[in-house]
Nucleic acid binder design. Structure first.
Lengths: 204, 204, 204, 204
DNA sequence: TTTTAATCGAGACGGTACGTCGCGTCTTGTT
DNA sequence: AACAAGACGCGACGTACCGTCTCGATTAAAA
């Protein structure tokens, strides 16, 4: 759960009636189900309210709009599925990480991410949530991997980390949002290999 | 101008009153102005109609929805600004092309593209228009550049073209849609250099 | 029908699609039925829309709020029921007029008027509609009756018309809104008689 | 102060924490201020609570709804302003009483009464409160005046008291709720005079 | 010259969703 | 018990756009 309101830690003894955890759960579940059924636009505040049994006002008391609810629910669901795990070398680690990501996004989950990223383009708050809760933490992990690899001599010492991450994951998101071809296993291997080896012709 | 309706050629001698070309122009201009003023969502059918003096019916007779009008107007405007031009070598050609693209998208125009790409995620017709009129033609041009470079030995012969394009432009679109940092001149040079040189450490 | 919008006469040839008379009728009928069923507050815009089959937006296009619809419907219904008719003398004319009014307001119709007058206290537009379409025309008729009676010597020549009307009808509305007792036939006769005869004791 | 709850006498020794008198006072003051600022509808339970610093729960423990609070506050304020005082004769007594009433209701206080009477039309409890605490006691006083006047021969012995009160005060409330003209001093004199003298022409 | 047919402007229409307000009730911990 | 705080379910509000429709008025080629 990653509420929009209480992102920070609440230290005060919490005056008044506490927020219902059941309600939160029911709302997130309903929102996710609706979004999978008919796309982000199908998960309206009214429908989430009806399906979850939680009043519309309660929803708006906690999230700025329906899309934000779906975003929270989506992130709750996907975060545990895509953790970096160290492999033999950088190549293997990145291939594994990207394959795990691609697998997690295969099918309706990918569409949902596409839609959310789409809506985030015209919704600053969502944009920020996207960065804070999805992109940024994963970049941090990627940078740790890169740093280790540099130490081990697997990556060039003068390498620009951001460029490396942008090229690897940029390619994946590019194919997600402009879906002219699949992000297949072989593609991922070719992608990582080429990014590591470079595109230049033989320097003789 | 790239009307959605008369993509095919009209062979019949066109009975009745012919469509007004002025109307089309006025609609596109109004749509673009509105989108720049307040985002894609500000360019509603009603507002475009009012601003352009063209009836809503007429708009819907030619475009499926308001976003499609904005897309058409946007593509009309941007296409001439981003043509590939050959330089000394692949490196220079790509750097120049990406810099031109980045320059064209700096400021409000980039936001508009972001928004359109966003809306396209939940609008199949727009998705297709995006691919057909923006992405695809540019990929064709890029592939010509790559082919030439392969012939000249500037790029590896066994190179996967799609991967190369995905990494280069994926990085740019990634930074466009997840705007954590600018697509600056130095960044573009670093990007192209690293993609060409590869990220691997020294093979001893 | 007494639309809030086109109170004045429209001379222009009426551009665009004309307003549906059926819709107007259906809305008024639904509003009145709902108000009789459960009071003015039961005639909400949503319910009127549902019952009449006319979209909520169409309702708001013509009336400022649900209460105004009920008011229009009520006035349409009641106006033909309470016309002044001349009798033998002023006394008989007023008694007949007030009895007709009382009869028309007996039962649910009186409650509806009470409610509407109530709502009008916090709604300027309704207040005005009330005066223009209900009170004012009836006062005009009353003044004609008074003028005639003065000519015939049935009423004192120096009489203040407004005071006379205020006392007669003020008493009726007073009992309507502060319903401590009924506006019965005998009461009406006593009312008119006492207003005509005066309350003063015998001038010896 | 005329609490809705403890109309009956509380005989039990009152277990637990006793009710705060300060709270009651603060609530009434806040309610009245809010009603004067923006009309009865502006005095919502939430706003009264916030302004007075008294919890919403506490308010609902003592009054059935926000309008009842305003009513209580209004009556507390106005009651001392409008006591009957005997003058030379009935005519003078009534003129003085009505003038005092009119003076008290001039300006925002009249609007507030209008609004309350309006709301009372759709709120039985308020309706009753209105009668019990405002209208009824004043009618009792009026009847005493009338009885005295009858004894003194200033009013006809066979006079119907209710009709007399209805006509005099009905006219005032009529002009309050259907404000087509002011309740001015001269108007009040003309009103009382005409009600006393009668409207009939000369019986020759 | 008169059809004939598609276009155009204007604007009404049925719908869906929005985000907010106010209601009166409830669940906390505190007095 | 009563209290402050505030969450909660509920119903209604009035608005924004959507895409469709129905008018009368143009506009040009076909009859």
């Amino acid at each position: 759960m990653s509420d929009h309101q209480d992102a920070g830690v609440r230290l005060e003894p919490a005056l008044g009636r506490p927020r219902s955890a059941d309600a939160t759960e029911a709302v997130l579940a309903a929102a996710l189900a609706l979004a999978y059924e008919g796309g982000v636009h199908h998960a309206t505040a009214a429908r989430i309210s009806e399906r979850s049994g939680v009043a519309k006002t309660t929803i708006y008391r906690r999230w700025p709009n329906a899309a934000a609810v779906v975003m929270d629910a989506f992130l709750d669901e996907i975060t545990p599925l895509i953790r970096y795990r160290r492999r033999a070398d950088v190549r293997a680690t990145f291939i594994a990480a990207i394959k795990e990501l691609a697998r997690a996004l295969r099918g309706p989950r990918g569409d949902l991410l596409r839609h959310l990223l789409g809506v985030a383009q015209t919704d600053l708050e969502l944009q920020k949530a996207f960065w804070d809760q999805w992109i940024s933490p994963r970049r941090v992990q990627a940078k740790e991997v890169i740093a280790e690899a540099k130490t081990l001599g697997q990556l060039r010492a003068d390498l620009d980390e951001d460029v490396l991450i942008d090229t690897l994951f940029g390619a994946v998101y590019y194919r997600l949002m402009i879906p002219y071809a699949e992000v297949s296993g072989p593609y991922i291997e070719a992608l990582v290999d080429q990014v590591l080896a470079g595109a230049s012709g033989p320097r003789i």
